[in-house]
Design a protein around this nucleic acid. Structure first.
Lengths: 149, 149
DNA sequence: TGAGTATTTGCAACATTATTGCATTTTTAA
DNA sequence: TTAAAAATGCAATAATGTTGCAAATACTCA
């Protein structure tokens, strides 16, 4: 509740806290990028971020996203070879010896193209004999709530 | 059984049939690429194909893989942004109005790095309220049979 | 608060990969 | 066997990923 209040009253402070909690310097550029993530309810492409940023340096954005990934601020969702989106990490994102897991299901709407992080654990029992399962990535395709009526 | 016999006796003929069934011209290059796929029991990277091809033109390989994907000869598995592998399509691969589905689970071994297409349907019930599910991609990570003993 | 240190940024340059156009070669179909 | 269609190889270009370094910014601690 305090969190929600903060979001409305002092968005920047929350973003600064997030950065500091990950031991990252607070810079204008990083706050801008986080703000963009926050404006979307879905995962976004780096192209979308680029067009949202008024000024913009390609290399800095590249490095910012890389840093954010490494520190567990965002996670990358590879839908296909050339379709990669990014989303803010949820609470269930675990950083474990530099390997960053995001144990939830992703949904891409074939109609509007939006990608959503679903708050359900990605662990159905597939009964894979002979294989030791450590984790899985699940991407679901179909129509989202708004597009299916 | 006839299929297996053919594989041993006249591999090229089988590959030619495969190409013809997809309305693709039979060329030396394409047969070579298919032969490489056939030598592996797991999915392979384009780098692996490159190093297997003695002579080799990067652009032709790029176009060959693209054509194979479009025609449903192979499918692409995007594990991460920069980790993409290819595998021959199984019988359950469906080509539907230029969209190519491969409704099975992929397994990547964290130890040996091999990627396997598992012959189980990728359709656990995740109970996604509000979303209409058309298909899903599931990638499983862990240790394969050979690496887990 | 301010000085010194560490980090980040922006630019230039380069590496790698994806993509297109076109002439030549190969394959297909009659 | 021959004309038409398709695939290949080469050149050139576009797009993306990556590094080094100097200038600017943020952080730490007295």
């Amino acid at each position: 509740m305090l969190q929600i209040l903060k979001l409305f009253c002092n968005f920047v402070a929350v973003m600064e806290d997030l950065l500091r909690s990950k031991k990252l310097s607070v810079t204008d550029f990083r706050v801008s990028v986080l703000e963009i993530f926050n404006r979307y309810s879905s995962a976004i492409t780096s192209d979308q971020i680029e067009s949202e940023l008024g000024e913009f340096d390609r290399i800095t954005l590249y490095r910012t996203l890389k840093t954010f990934k490494e520190k567990g601020v965002i996670h990358e969702i590879a839908l296909t070879d050339t379709d990669t989106v990014y989303a803010l990490c949820l609470d269930d994102c675990i950083e474990d010896e530099h390997i960053h897991h995001h144990e939830h299901v992703h949904f891409k709407c074939d109609n509007c193209g939006n990608v959503f992080c679903l708050d359900i654990p990605a662990y159905p029992d597939l009964n894979l004999k002979g294989f030791r399962v450590d984790r899985m990535d699940i991407q679901v395709f179909g129509k989202c709530e708004a597009c299916s009526c």
